[in-house]
Write a protein that binds this DNA or RNA. Structure first.
Lengths: 229, 229
DNA sequence: TAAATTGTTTAGCCAAGACTAAATATTGCA
DNA sequence: TGCAATATTTAGTCTTGGCTAAACAATTTA
């Protein structure tokens, strides 16, 4: 049985390891809220273990093996299923589900996982728009681009938002910017990353704190319907 | 934040502490699946701590304070709510809910507890017939007697069964001996604690493993309905 | 290309929570 | 009442998983 620390470690490696680069100890330490020395320790321990979850090279960092990857995906599946279950079946607000899932993901049985998935009819995305890995470790890729990269004048649909920051989620919730919803990108503010948008007829300025955590697909150009002056 | 070890410790003390006697380290060790020395350690640590969960006297044992009692009741409320939730909302069989709840009870938030309770419409007993403590720490007493103490010739109703032994629960499930169900006590077997019973017209011998874990109320005398020979 | 900066590892420490073995207290019984 | 049996505590050890401070490697920059 893997400890919660190990599960969290592997999960962190997975989510930092875009492509198949090495993941450095500092980035991991940052993601885990720990000190780099602690990460080095754990990395060395896991690399030496028979579990074969990852490989470690001094001063390079860490890379998941096949085994490690599927462990990570299992934990992430737990996490996202739990988030969705809490949200849909128990009405937990979307800014709270992450923290709750963070604890529950390590203690539910496979059987319980299956039952939750069945109750939700084998869902594929979680409340923040992130894909739920399948039991056999497949992740459906969801095309999206950072909101910051969208040129003004386009209508976009929210694909996914970062689930880590509860305050951000409450803010987005107030603006009704849930995955699946659409809004128009009107323009960039003069300074910083802020963007002015229009959702449901209401124009707003989207704070620069929020922009980097929103991923969208471009639906099309803005159409000027009425007000043809 | 109390650790899981501490929560389990306090819970164990609570459930062994009928009346207000001291609870000895051996009994605790036995209940916790640990060695007596480990229990002494923990008892001394907790007694010295500022949390004030319990008092400890060398060679006597341990006794919960008010605070300790309400912590225990909180954990037990979690446990039993979770058991019932899993059973009713997710169809987890009653011999599995205990182990699952044992892990979940330490990680759910108060908010989640409230939501589960609401979804179940503020239930008062769990799948094994045990009372669910209220949020303010009240336990509705449920009058019952050990099945072993019932004289043959009576109809009884199952009030509560011990939830610790999954095998026992499967056995009782096969016999349909769920809390709320009734059966007749026909007689005692010549040796051991076995009892012959009749449930739903079907006579059975109830193994001596099972008898001490069943608690009932006496409903009345057996009436010979048909077969008046 | 050498020095300064930055990032990583090593070494040693700590707390929690379990264990065993040995010492000590309590209890039960002759 | 005193000794044997039983229960409890003490003392010391181990593992896990974190930390800090100091040493060391790699990278950046003058």
């Amino acid at each position: 049985m893997l400890s919660q620390s190990v599960e969290n470690f592997v999960k962190a490696v997975y989510s930092l390891q875009k492509s198949d680069e090495w993941v450095g100890t500092s980035r991991l330490a940052n993601a885990l809220g720990q000190r780099p020395a602690s990460v080095t320790n754990m990395a060395q321990k896991l690399a030496k273990s028979e579990d074969g979850l990852l490989i470690y090279q001094a001063y390079k960092g860490v890379k998941l093996t096949e085994t490690g990857t599927s462990v990570a995906l299992e934990v992430i599946r737990h996490h996202r299923l739990i988030e969705l279950y809490l949200s849909k079946q128990l009405g937990v607000p979307w800014d709270k589900v992450h923290d709750e899932a963070e604890k529950l993901e390590h203690v539910i049985s496979e059987d319980l996982e299956d039952r939750m998935a069945a109750a939700l009819e084998d869902p594929t995305i979680d409340p923040h728009g992130a894909p739920i890995p399948t039991k056999d470790g497949h992740v459906a890729p969801r095309p999206s681009v950072p909101l910051a990269s969208v040129e003004p004048g386009h209508v976009v649909e929210v694909v996914e938002v970062n689930d880590h920051d509860a305050q951000l989620l409450r803010y987005l919730g107030e603006l009704d910017l849930y995955p699946g919803n659409r809004f128009s990108v009107l323009g960039r503010e003069s300074f910083g990353q802020s963007i002015s948008i229009e959702r449901d007829g209401k124009p707003t300025s989207l704070g620069e704190e929020a922009v980097p955590h929103i991923f969208v697909t471009v639906i099309g150009e803005i159409e000027k319907k009425k007000d043809p002056e």
